[in-house]
Amino acid sequence: MHALALLAACVTIVGAIMVITRRVAVHAVLYLVVTLLALATVLVMLGASFAAMLEIIIYAGAIMVLFVFVIMMLNLGQPDSAREKEWLRPRAWLGPGVLATIVCAELLYCTSPLSGAAPVPAAITVHDVGADLFGRYVLVVELVSYLLLAGLVSAFYIGRNRAGGR
């Protein structure tokens, strides 16, 4: 099980490095999804399956849809047809595909009864997460939501100014 945790951590690190080094925003988003899935795998191995599901649903799902929407809305750079041809090349999908396959295989192995993983005695429940998020961490949650909103408005404003200058 330690080897699987190290493999998931390595996938997370490689994915994060690829997010930073990609020049095309959509490729960076693909690697970010893989990185978030690898983090969810680490959470499953630690016994926090509910936190892992929140990671997948909120970050790898909803936030990534928001990022793709912003990228499409800004429409910076090349014309649409040239940009779409670049996105659809197999070379662009090979890295995220391989990393996602490794992460999915790990998740399937860890959640199968064949893995022999010992059950974690103290599981995190939905009530615990809700009580923490809307109890002592409510200010942090609200600040993060304002930060995301400010980032979206800033990206829209910067994109509009650049598009107007073309």
Rank of each mutant, 00 (worst) to 15 (best):
L39A: 06
V70Y: 00
W93Y: 09
N75W: 00
R83Q: 05
P121Q: 12
V153Y: 07
S49Q: 11
R91W: 03
G116M: 09
A16Q: 03
M18C: 11
A48F: 05
L94A: 13
L7K: 15
I63L: 13
V14F: 10
V65R: 06
D128L: 11
F134E: 12
V11C: 11
E86N: 02
V33T: 11
L107E: 01
I63H: 07
A60W: 03
R166D: 15
A105D: 06
T12Y: 13
G135V: 09
L4E: 05
A5T: 06
R23E: 13
R23C: 13
F50G: 05
L108Q: 04
A105W: 09
V24G: 04
S112H: 10
R83Y: 06
G47I: 00
V19G: 02
K85S: 03
V153I: 15
G95N: 00
N161A: 15
D132V: 10
M1C: 03
A92T: 04
Y137G: 08
G159T: 09
E84F: 12
W93F: 08
G130S: 15
Y31R: 07
L99N: 02
G47L: 00
I20S: 11
L99H: 02
R22G: 05
A25T: 10
F156D: 02
T35S: 07
A123I: 14
S145I: 10
L46T: 02
V140F: 10
F69I: 01
A100I: 06
C110V: 14
R22Y: 04
V34T: 11
P121V: 10
I57Q: 10
A5E: 10
A40I: 04
C110G: 10
W93V: 03
T125L: 08
W93G: 00
G95E: 02
H27S: 12
Q78E: 08
A38W: 00
F156S: 09
L6W: 09
A117E: 05
F134D: 11
I20P: 02
M45S: 04
A131L: 12
T12Q: 13
L30P: 00
A117F: 06
T21M: 12
E86T: 03
H127F: 13
K85E: 07
I56R: 04
M73W: 02
M53P: 03
S154D: 15
L76S: 08
T125V: 06
R91Q: 06
T12W: 09
G116H: 04
T125S: 15
L143W: 09
F156G: 08
T12H: 12
L37T: 08
M64C: 12
V98A: 09
R89E: 05
L94F: 09
I56T: 11
L30T: 03
R136E: 11
L139M: 15
L152T: 14
A5P: 00
R89I: 01
I63T: 09
L99D: 01
V141Y: 07
L36R: 02
V103G: 05
V126Y: 14
P119T: 07
E142C: 10
G116L: 05
L6K: 12
L149G: 11
S81T: 06
S115I: 07
R83G: 00
S115E: 05
T41I: 00
R136Q: 11
L32Q: 07
I57T: 15
V44Y: 04
F50Q: 06
R22E: 09
S145Y: 13
P79K: 01
K85H: 05
W87Y: 11
R160S: 15
S154Q: 13
G135M: 07
V34F: 02
L46C: 06
L88C: 06
A60C: 12
S81L: 06
I158V: 13
A122P: 02
I63N: 01
